[in-house]
Design a protein around this nucleic acid. Structure first.
Ligand SMILES: [Mn+2]
Ligand SMILES: [Mn+2]
Ligand SMILES: [Zn+2]
Ligand SMILES: [Zn+2]
Lengths: 145, 145
DNA sequence: TAGTTTGTTGTAAATTTTTGCAACAAGAAA
DNA sequence: TTTCTTGTTGCAAAAATTTACAACAAACTA
């Protein structure tokens, strides 16, 4: 568990929300399971600990924690959603379609793109966590062999 | 109907696939319904014309035509998928989270980003149709009022 | 045109995700 | 600690999406 529980709880209560055992379990699960955790993986994990915790709650809490910017959501292949802790440093990913490897990109890689959209279209892009799909070095060289 | 039916049919047959009435109906539907068409909208449309055409076929054909690059897929809000004709000119979108307005971006806006990823990470990004969410001019000014 | 091959569809069931609603319980107040 | 308010949960049903499989039919061949 690497997240600041006390700080998060304070933030939630301050906004009029409640800190429930379900929310804590689900947050811990995402934190432990790592990057790009699917709702089903979260459910499997928490269900072992709290068998009555329902799938509906998993989906609701993941959505809720994302709204609160405690989690970050990401589109993964096939249009599915996954989640991970929203660190203080937003980031993006390069995901290889062949080997599923994951490269982390600093948030800044999109800065110039965002500025361009602001100046050209007066549109304020709001991106906190994108995945770009493609092919990594290794897979490109082995495919060409 | 603004797509080249004959050319598409030829392309499919050449690859060993078949041109079925279902595929033609679904393609026509996407073409007529416009940008960012949801599977449900397609189903509603084609079901009126061919009541036995099933939902499963709609999902399957949308996925299939996307693989064949005849349709383009796009993530819309909430992690849902939508489809549209894949024109010869790939493009992207700026989608306003407040008024749902849609701005079309030329494919070239991401060119420098893609080149940067290639030189910095040796990763070949494969993007044909992205949507960036945010807030347009109008909605930003009225929110500040 | 009739026969053959095999890609495709419809059906039904399995999964996944969302939603309504009554019971519950976190946190504030007394 | 007890009471009260109302945000949250579990359940069950609805809705959305995927999948297995037998029947079907598009395209090829004779
Ligand atoms: Mn990430
Ligand atoms: Mn588009
Ligand atoms: Zn790879
Ligand atoms: Zn707007």
């Amino acid at each position: 568990m690497s997240h600041n529980t006390a700080e998060i709880n304070r933030q939630l209560r301050k906004s009029g929300y409640r800190v429930t055992p379900q929310r804590q379990l689900i947050l811990d699960a995402v934190c432990q399971l790592g990057d790009h955790v699917t709702p089903e993986a979260v459910y499997d994990h928490v269900h072992r600990i709290a068998p009555t915790l329902s799938r509906a709650t998993v989906y609701r809490v993941l959505h809720f924690l994302t709204e609160q910017q405690i989690l970050a959501m990401v589109h993964i292949a096939d249009g599915r959603l996954a989640y991970e802790m929203a660190g203080p440093e937003p980031h993006h990913h390069l995901v290889c379609r062949t080997c599923d490897s994951l490269l982390e990109l600093p948030h800044s890689v999109l800065l110039s793109f965002r500025l361009a959209m602001e100046s050209q279209y007066d549109f304020e892009i709001d991106v906190s966590h994108l995945s770009f799909f493609g092919h990594c070095t290794d897979c490109r060289s082995s495919a060409g062999a």
